[in-house]
Design a protein around this nucleic acid. Structure first.
Lengths: 219, 219
DNA sequence: TAGATTGTTAATCGATTAACAATC
DNA sequence: TAGATTGTTAATCGATTAACAATC
């Protein structure tokens, strides 16, 4: 196992810690106690201490945590500085927006190429990155060994693309397609981002908030 | 409270059920047992039955669940058919992509307008929806009473926009900004979509999968 | 009826919170 | 030293899984 077999719940909170610590740093705050941070982030001080101690004792009794240091530690845990070779599949609206909107370079990652089935796009660029035909995918991977793929394609194409990319040595998938990449690929790292699911949850929550009502199902 | 005070974990799974049932329906499957569905979705049959029974007994002993019926029930729980008036704040890359990519109409929702601080965009359209200056926001809300806002703006502007929109009667926020909308607005429904957080989690998972190593922190 | 599969209660597991001794 | 705040153990809470009687 890695570190200590950290639970998924803890991991999912790390980027949020990283974000808040970044804000504090910007504000010029040097140190912060778990208590103060907990109030700001709306969780318990206990949880913060518990979470951080999965990775090591970053704090100091009687003082708290050094903001800059702690942020760097979390960045290291998330491997933010590591070199990463990223490709994108799908140059539609969503792909373009992600390519333009996400600052891969900020974490030392390089978006190397974008692929699309539509050959008429070949030669164009998004955010300074060339678009290629999907036909060129295998050859590109053989030569450039990308490790992460961002999938911005419809559900239909996804399964096959994942298979191909896995064969080509890609081990991480940031998946915006409607298809769930499941554990068929045991060594793959996967983040499924289902925007529609998120919107549906919001739809549910909307009703919940303005409806102090009784059971509408029992009819 | 609503129905039965359903836990957040259950709610978060509902859209996924809805999606898988949609696939089954497309394939022409009429009925499915919790067992068969569990294998497909990679969770336990127990959990499926437990989840569904939060809302009512949709199944039939010895038979299973009717796919079409169950899907409709879940759709109703999520209030997917309800009329919704949606506006978007921010006509940048991400806003444009969301406007073009998400099929609001499919669920009976109407994207009424997009607002942007950059007045030079006023008059343009995205996905057939007019762009207005943010200056026109209050007046628009007074006249059109939107209930949901999609926030595709930078961190800095978010807090104020949420405040304004809340005053204007908007109760639901689909938030793509780097700012966490927190419980200051007790009756607001919020879905924070932090794409960068998701990417960072993937970064962590990547290392975990190809690193059957010991503790790198203890140095 | 016999077989299948649900709805539901009970058992287990994991995650969060509380408490407090260690220590800066 | 006294005060503050961590790291860590123990208690609580919630969510998942297992089991099985009810029933189609």
């Amino acid at each position: 196992m890695q570190e200590k077999n950290i639970s998924k719940s803890v991991i999912r909170r790390l980027p949020r810690y990283y974000r808040f610590l970044g804000e504090l740093l910007k504000e010029g705050t040097e140190k912060i106690s778990s208590r103060a941070l907990s109030e700001r982030m709306r969780l318990t001080a206990s949880q913060i201490r518990q979470d951080l101690n999965c990775f090591g004792g970053f704090g100091q009794q009687g003082y708290g945590y050094n903001v800059k240091e702690l942020r760097e530690e979390i960045g290291a845990i998330l491997h933010l500085g590591d070199k990463r070779r990223v490709i994108m599949i799908g140059a539609g609206n969503l792909g373009r927006a992600i390519a333009l909107h996400i600052d891969f370079q900020r974490y030392g990652w390089e978006l190397m190429a974008v692929f699309d089935r539509d050959d008429t796009l070949s030669g164009e660029s998004i955010a300074g990155v060339k678009i290629y035909s999907t036909d060129a995918l295998r050859a590109f991977c053989a030569g450039n060994r990308p490790d992460m793929a961002v999938l911005c394609i419809p559900r239909e194409g996804a399964e096959e693309v994942v298979k191909t990319l896995t064969e080509c040595g890609v081990t991480a998938f940031w998946n915006f397609s409607h298809y769930d990449i499941h554990a068929d690929y045991p060594n793959a790292a996967v983040e499924n981002v289902h925007l529609t699911d998120s919107l549906m949850i919001l739809s549910y929550l909307m009703e919940e908030s303005d409806e102090p009502e009784d059971d509408p199902v029992t009819t």
